[in-house]
Computed example of a mutant assay.
Amino acid sequence: MKITEIRLGSISVPLRVPFKTALRTVTSVEDIILEIHTDTGAVGYGEAPPTGAVTGHTTGAIVGALKDHIIPNLLGKDIDAFEDLMQLVQSCVHGNSSAKAAADMALWDLYGQLYKLPVYKLLGGARKQLVTDITISVNEPEEMARDAGTAIARGYDCLKVKVGADPTLDVARLRAVREVAGADIRLRIDANQAWEPKQAVRILNEMQEQGLKLEFVEQPVKAHDIEGLKYVTEHSFVPVLADESVFSPRDAMRVLEQRAADLINIKLMKCGGIYNALKIVAAAEIYGVECMIGCMLEAKISVNAAVELACAKKVFTRIDLDGPVLCSEDPILGGARFEEKFITVSDEAGMGIRGVEGLRYLD
């Protein structure tokens, strides 16, 4: 199976409601789609969202990395030389982990098709179904309470609540959500790097003292502040999940070695795809640290790749793959089934993606 052609396109998918965090506000998913065609007729699909506020990768950066570096190096290559392809994708351009992730997942898709196995079974086959949380955007307390009530009515029993845009309101936001949620709904919060270490400890401990029962806090401090992250982990009543602090396997090792967080969040767009994610998984398993599988605001192709990984490995004990259910429509044909909180992986060879409706080609 040789690569004969690689095409780029884009999709635009409106969100049900605006997505608001301490870093940005988004109203639609605007993603780059990668198609890798082969001489057997098999097609592998990849996807990358421009998330400049988080990864630093804009649409232009993703397209440029793919067109100028990754695609020329992949054309003509044999899928069966898989390890070489993985190393080539990671080494042919510096950084640009989102572009690398798009190529990585498309290659895994083809590798599974070559050997007629779904990717999750190639990687371990631990389970077939996941249960995801759903994100509640940061807004005024009353609006967040309404959004929480809507999510619970849709069947979700775990909410990831965005905080940090105005720290003085964060306790009130969580109190309003908890009042609507009752005692049995799990609440986890994401500060998106908004707090200083001592401020984070004060806010988190106040939240727990008020009976808000938080499962964990995601990235309470700046990504580079590993010392501050460790301080919060050691002094907070709330377990700490490292997100933006962990892009690469090297980042993960630093956090794990210093015991700077209780949990690690793996996102394919941060680490450059499944190939590097597996290295982080192995390190977390060695240190006995559980992981969450997360996503950016992405449509189903790239979230589907994360589903394949999470269904393969038991180290993923928290699931945050709500991108497709935040969208108002799904233009992706095939792949995993997203039925509100339940995600069921496809048993088709590769990743099971059959096409994209409304794809606008860039060439």
Rank of each mutant, 00 (worst) to 15 (best):
C295D: 10
R337H: 09
D251G: 03
L268C: 06
T59E: 15
K230W: 02
H57V: 07
F216L: 12
L85G: 00
A126C: 12
K100R: 07
E285Q: 15
E179F: 09
V171F: 14
A194Y: 09
D184S: 14
D133I: 12
G76H: 00
M105Q: 11
V93H: 03
I319G: 01
E179V: 10
K2G: 06
L278C: 15
R254L: 11
L159K: 04
V163Q: 06
A223N: 14
S328L: 10
G323D: 13
D104V: 04
T21Y: 06
T38E: 07
L23Y: 06
L256R: 06
V356D: 03
F216R: 05
S91A: 12
G64Q: 11
Q258S: 09
A200Q: 08
I343Q: 02
I134K: 01
K279A: 02
V29L: 14
S98W: 04
P239A: 07
E234S: 14
A53S: 14
K67N: 15
M253H: 07
V89L: 02
Y231A: 06
G323F: 03
A153W: 08
I185C: 05
N96Y: 05
E206N: 11
P331R: 00
L359R: 04
K2W: 01
K162Y: 09
L321S: 10
L110M: 02
V13T: 02
Q199N: 15
L204D: 01
A223C: 08
R360H: 15
I6N: 02
L309R: 00
Y111K: 13
I33S: 07
L326D: 00
E209V: 10
A151N: 01
A102F: 09
A22G: 14
G358H: 14
G272V: 10
A282P: 05
Q210P: 02
L123Q: 01
L333V: 13
A312G: 03
M296C: 14
L85N: 05
G76C: 06
A48P: 01
D104H: 07
P72T: 00
I343A: 04
D157N: 13
L23M: 13
K341W: 10
